[in-house]
Simulated scan of single mutants.
Amino acid sequence: MDRLDAMGILLAVVENGSLSAASRQLKMPLATISRKVSELEAHLGAQLITRTNRKILLTETGRSYVEAAKEILSRVEEAERVAAGEYSAVKGDLTVAAPIVFGRLHVLPVIVDFLKVHPEVDMRLALGDRFSNLVDDHIDLALRIGHLPDSNLVATKIGAVRRVVYASPDYVARHGALTHPHQLADHDCITFENVTAAHVWRFLEDGRELTAPIRSRLIVNTAEAAVDAAIAGLGLTRVLSYQVAKPVAEGLLVPLLETFEHPSLPVQLVYLPQGLVPMKLRAFVDFAAPRLRAVLR
């Protein structure tokens, strides 16, 4: 039995939540997946997972073994990268995570230019508006907006953005400009549910937290949809400044209540601490940081 192969299959089962899902991901017959896991359990003399109709559950022994297997496979992968020269040359695979709008507008063009310069690098761009787990999601580098909950990450600051209320000039002409957050209760609002609450928005007044009730005429799950609805004159929306930079520059949206906003949020490139940073990662950070700083200036 190839124990490293069996460990990899077990991790795929755990990460995907079932034997069948792991089978689809690995493009391996379900019977083979089941047999490999059973052989590993027989070799160890311990049950690692409990199979149910819908999902698998790790036993206590299984949880300990999976954590150890992750560490072992990570070290093996690192050894292979060293042998392949990733620490002495810009080559190999690189996965970058970024928020959807910022990633599409700003990170993707940087990646395209980087790949043109470095033909031996292949990249994956994972776009999503929720913080990805760098370990579990196999992310080499992430662009994070906001203060870092994990201070162990290595961070390179590239700028800052603000969360501001915006409306179309037409909406302001029809309903009037706002001078205080409490006036929001009398207006139609468009909320981006991943970032703002649907019933209240929070501001600062004289250094104190201020909670303003709102009425959400429309709730969406992407910033782009919120911005488009605001441009169409449906109501007010509250998004990050970079998400509306173009429509603001074109006069399609105007900022409101800026004096009541919270301080700017830092934008950073982050990666896990490691003894020796692969050349591909160092090269991309050095390439991307000044270009991203320029768009956030």
Rank of each mutant, 00 (worst) to 15 (best):
H187M: 15
T211S: 08
F102I: 00
R35A: 03
G45C: 00
A69D: 04
I190G: 13
A97K: 02
D2P: 14
A126Q: 10
T259A: 03
T59A: 04
D2R: 09
A177K: 00
D137R: 13
L257I: 03
A142R: 11
L57F: 11
A12S: 15
V14T: 15
P290G: 03
S132A: 15
L141A: 07
F192P: 07
A31D: 12
K116M: 08
R75I: 11
P290Q: 01
F192R: 00
P181H: 00
I49M: 11
V244L: 04
A226E: 06
M279I: 09
L234S: 12
P266I: 02
P213A: 04
E250W: 02
H106F: 13
V66W: 05
V195F: 06
D186N: 14
L44I: 09
V267M: 03
A142T: 15
R291A: 11
A12V: 15
D286I: 03
T179C: 00
V13T: 13
G176Q: 00
N53F: 09
K27V: 15
S20M: 04
G235Q: 10
I219T: 08
H180V: 02
V295H: 07
K280D: 14
E261D: 14
L292Q: 10
H147P: 07
E39Q: 10
N194T: 10
L57A: 06
E41S: 11
G45A: 01
I33Y: 06
L115D: 14
Q274I: 14
G85K: 08
A97D: 06
S168N: 14
S132F: 15
E86T: 11
A177D: 00
L252H: 12
A68L: 14
S241M: 03
P273L: 01
V161A: 07
S23G: 09
A173E: 03
V37P: 05
D206G: 00
G85A: 09
Y87Q: 12
E205C: 04
I190K: 06
I56S: 13
H262L: 07
V96K: 08
H43C: 02
Y242S: 02
V161E: 03
R3P: 09
A126T: 14
Q183I: 02
L94T: 12
L134S: 08
A89Y: 10
A223I: 03
Q25N: 15
K27M: 13
D136V: 08
F260W: 06
G8R: 01
G235F: 10
A225Y: 04
Y171H: 05
A283K: 03
L272N: 12
I33A: 07
A245Y: 01
L105V: 03
A245G: 07
T179Q: 00
L26V: 14
S20F: 01
R217I: 12
V267A: 02
R35G: 00
G159A: 02
I9A: 02
R104E: 13
E193Q: 04
V37H: 03
E120H: 12
I214Q: 04
A249L: 06
L108E: 08
L292M: 12
C189V: 12
P247I: 01
V172Q: 02
V82F: 13
R163I: 11
V200E: 15
L272I: 12
S216P: 06
